[in-house]
Design a protein around this nucleic acid. Structure first.
Lengths: 208, 208
DNA sequence: AAAAATGTTGACCGATCGTGCAGAAATCAT
DNA sequence: ATGATTTCTGCACGATCGGTCAACATTTTT
């Protein structure tokens, strides 16, 4: 017997297969959702049989859960990197840049989290009210400090962060709508235009 | 034979039952998605039997399709009401108000559309590239006119509309996250705070 | 090479779900 | 009241899906 999924990772082969399944699962789950996707679709996308997928993981839900967990850190990294040491406006604009880049380069991850939260985030457990809240509160305090020091216009830091999340992720999550409304020509530069627009908006807003 | 669903509506009874099913479907579909929800859940929420639901509609997909269609107009109405006649900033801030109100009072509708678009909007057909694009282009032209007249700061009108969509709908679609991050106390006033923040941001941004 | 561990597949099961249909039950028209 | 129409239910079929298990194949270890 094997049980590749339960204990610590072993061989390189196992790591590679698990990674292939993660990749396929990200493709399928982000497009169809957890309930809308089937194990066979994931297996086919990974180039494996359904039973073989179950061999490496212990079921559909576990793939989804581990996938979500493995992506969480990477997802909040840009906010983590927002530093009190740098120039206030620079730090925030850099954060916007990285978030727009993530919408452009990691739209599947964005949609995966969006779908999860949209449906009540039952599988994110209590990560939201603990880890994420702590992180946001921390960074909001930094921003508040900048505002108190007169380096930024006074605004609610939490809602400022929400606005950046929403505006940037919008271009990944609602890409179909964005492209439909912009039309084929203007869609080509939608990410550059979005980044310029959001930065412009924030510069005007945050200027003390 | 009956076929309550295919032809024009008849009795008051049919209208009421269909409305009850719509209400139930909005509840269930917005929470679990089309594929994640079952007919029996919709039926139970509507106080009917599964087969009886099929009697009034001709299947699960038809309920979803008609529900989406019946909500579409209501959903874009605020943008439709944005008028070239009014004061530029007033018109835009009023639009924001109405969008925040919709996030507060119609979160299910917001999540339903969000899920649909997130998954590629296959059932919105070509409404996005035609009707919605036309509407947005129309309103963007009005805003552009205001900017050309020096009444608003020059910005990309399309991305301005996107930013309003994303920021306002964020508080409906990602409500779990917003409440988790804000904590119980601050969550109580999240919609008022959001409206004030977004308006503040837009005022600073759009001031010529 | 033999044995052990790891990897893969085919056959299959139980459960769920959407749907069709005959007919009962209720309501309405005359 | 009688017949027609509408409304509702019981029954059940076919399809799909997640998951199991034993057998087979491959790789690794000794």
């Amino acid at each position: 017997m094997a049980r590749a999924g339960t204990t610590a990772r072993k061989t390189r082969n196992q790591m590679e297969k698990r990674q292939a399944i993660f990749e396929a699962a990200l493709d399928v789950f982000s497009e169809k959702g957890l309930r809308g996707a089937t194990l066979e679709q994931v297996a086919k996308a990974a180039g494996l049989s359904k039973q073989n997928v179950v061999y490496y993981f212990n079921g559909k839900d576990q793939i989804y859960a581990e996938l979500l967990e493995s992506l969480l850190q990477k997802w909040v990294q840009p906010l983590h990197d927002l530093s009190a040491e740098g120039d206030p406006l620079d730090e925030i604009l850099t954060y916007v840049s990285r978030k727009v880049q993530m919408s452009r380069n990691m739209p599947r991850e964005s949609r995966l989290f969006a779908t999860e939260i949209l449906h009540g985030a039952p599988r994110l457990g209590d990560v939201l009210p603990t880890d994420l809240k702590t992180l946001v509160d921390d960074k909001a305090a930094i921003i508040q400090g900048w505002m108190d020091a007169g380096k930024l216009a006074p605004l609610d830091p939490h809602h400022l962060i929400f606005s950046i999340w929403s505006m940037t992720q919008h271009y990944a999550d609602f890409d179909v709508q964005v492209r439909s409304v912009l039309g084929p020509e203007r869609s080509a530069t939608r990410f550059e235009d979005a980044e310029a627009f959001i930065k412009d908006m924030l510069i005007r807003t945050l200027q003390p």
